[in-house]
Simulated assay, not measured.
Amino acid sequence: MRLLHEQARRRGLELIGAEKPANLSFADASKFSALVPCDVEDAAAAVATMTSVDAEVAGVLAFRDLCVEPLAAVARALGIPAISPSAARTTRNKDLSRERLREAGLPQPASALVRNVTEAREFLDSTPPGPWIVKPRDGMGSAQVDLVRSAADLEQAFSGRPHGSPALIEEFVPGPEFSADGVVVGGVPVITALAQKSLGPCFVETGHRVPADLSDAQVALVDEQMRVALPAVGLDRGLFHVEFWTHDTGVVLGEIHARPGGAFIPTMAEYARPGLEMYGLYLDDVLGRPSRPIPPTTRSAGMRHLIVQPPGRLVSVSGWDAAVAVDECVASGLLVGPGDRIGPVTWSADRHGFVVVEGASGAEVDACLDRIENGIGFEVTQDGPPEPVSPPSAP
């Protein structure tokens, strides 16, 4: 939020923050001209609240997936530039996004929306041998993502899911995973960061590094596909975060998000491209001002989520202050403390801390992250089963 605040102020703009009342206490009030209690995850409630705010609004930004559709409805009610409610719905529902990308001629895995094991088994029978992935059509944070290697795995994959709730089943896409972040400027997607992604248990993200290890040909192919994909799903305004895989035959796009990437990706993009103002690109676009040139990538930045092992009761943490005190560390947070129960990592909220660093190269960043992680000690004792955190349910 600091970057958005600074770049807005430089353009003579103020920020109005809207959030659920229970979450407002966590907001830094100094960054906003007003903080509005609002059910930002309900479109009707958000429209009713935000249309009553006495302010001239130039643009809107969502930072959570559950806020994308309500924010699109608010923008339409206010008559300001933003993606349409239908585009917001498409980006929020993975099956709809896959359909639009397939219709646009982009390579996509075979997929289907199913409601039970029987329908999922029919899909498996109609596709080449697996593996496959089963996940919620509008899920987030890698919650309830299951790898299915055969029909025998389907019962386990569907256990615990809400009865009758649609799930997306699709062919598993092999290869390393990446993400592209940027801003739609004048209707054209402008990529500001290509991030390398690392994954842990249950496909939960454990780290990102900017820039990614991609060849010039791969970068050009990603840019080419993005120029087709974003208009195909209706994402014609604002910031975007798009996941993709690479393999021998090219690039396959995954989920498309109408929001900035999490995990400090905008911050890392600006460290990797000194002089870049990622939010400023968006603000200039909605204000109708000429866009500024995109500075070249001359440095690197990376972040790592910390995962405490094994599960149990956390007794002590050692070395944290010294490990994160290095000059290269630009942000850090420890999310657990002595006495906390450490459960298995099944979605993003189960991670236990993070570190963000910057450096001259990707190798330097990776080495720094290794040193910091190796300098932190976690003592865990086994004193009974951990208490898992329940992933969110879609409204």
Results as ranks from 00 to 15, higher is better:
99 E>I: 14
42 D>W: 05
135 K>L: 00
375 G>V: 06
65 D>F: 08
333 G>D: 09
360 A>P: 09
354 F>Y: 14
298 T>S: 12
169 I>M: 01
90 T>N: 03
55 A>N: 06
50 M>G: 02
153 D>M: 05
271 Y>N: 05
343 G>P: 14
343 G>Q: 13
47 V>K: 04
349 A>H: 14
74 V>K: 01
141 G>Y: 08
299 R>Q: 13
45 A>M: 10
271 Y>W: 12
376 I>N: 09
33 S>L: 05
249 T>I: 14
214 L>W: 08
219 V>E: 15
172 F>P: 11
49 T>H: 05
3 L>R: 10
101 L>P: 02
202 C>N: 15
215 S>P: 04
267 T>H: 12
365 V>Q: 06
187 G>F: 03
347 W>F: 14
308 V>E: 05
313 R>E: 13
368 C>A: 13
43 A>V: 02
325 A>T: 08
373 E>V: 13
257 H>R: 11
31 K>R: 13
35 L>A: 06
324 V>G: 04
286 V>E: 00
299 R>H: 13
193 A>M: 13
98 R>L: 02
200 G>Q: 04
123 F>Y: 04
382 Q>D: 14
318 S>T: 15
298 T>Y: 11
151 A>G: 13
90 T>Y: 00
373 E>M: 09
357 V>S: 07
300 S>F: 12
189 P>Y: 12
49 T>S: 10
78 L>H: 02
16 I>L: 02
333 G>R: 12
315 V>M: 12
120 A>W: 04
124 L>E: 02
162 P>I: 14
167 A>D: 06
124 L>F: 03
205 E>R: 11
254 G>R: 03
164 G>F: 09
390 S>D: 15
327 D>M: 11
328 E>C: 11
125 D>P: 03
284 D>I: 00
82 A>I: 00
332 S>G: 03
308 V>I: 15
273 R>H: 10
393 S>D: 15
206 T>F: 07
272 A>M: 10
139 G>E: 06
41 E>R: 15
6 E>K: 05
131 P>D: 01
70 P>T: 02
5 H>L: 02
11 R>N: 00
271 Y>H: 15
102 R>M: 04
194 L>N: 08
319 G>V: 07
320 W>A: 07
19 E>I: 01
218 Q>I: 07
285 D>V: 00
342 I>Y: 12
373 E>R: 15
297 T>Y: 12
310 P>G: 09
348 S>C: 10
232 A>D: 03
312 G>H: 11
133 I>C: 04
53 V>Q: 04
107 P>I: 02
130 G>Y: 00
278 M>V: 03
166 P>V: 07
338 P>R: 04
198 S>I: 05
358 E>S: 15
364 E>M: 11
316 S>E: 11
101 L>S: 02
75 A>L: 01
329 C>D: 07
333 G>T: 03
59 G>P: 02
65 D>N: 10
392 P>R: 09
14 E>F: 05
105 G>L: 01
30 S>Q: 13
8 A>Y: 00
129 P>Y: 10
368 C>K: 15
177 E>A: 07
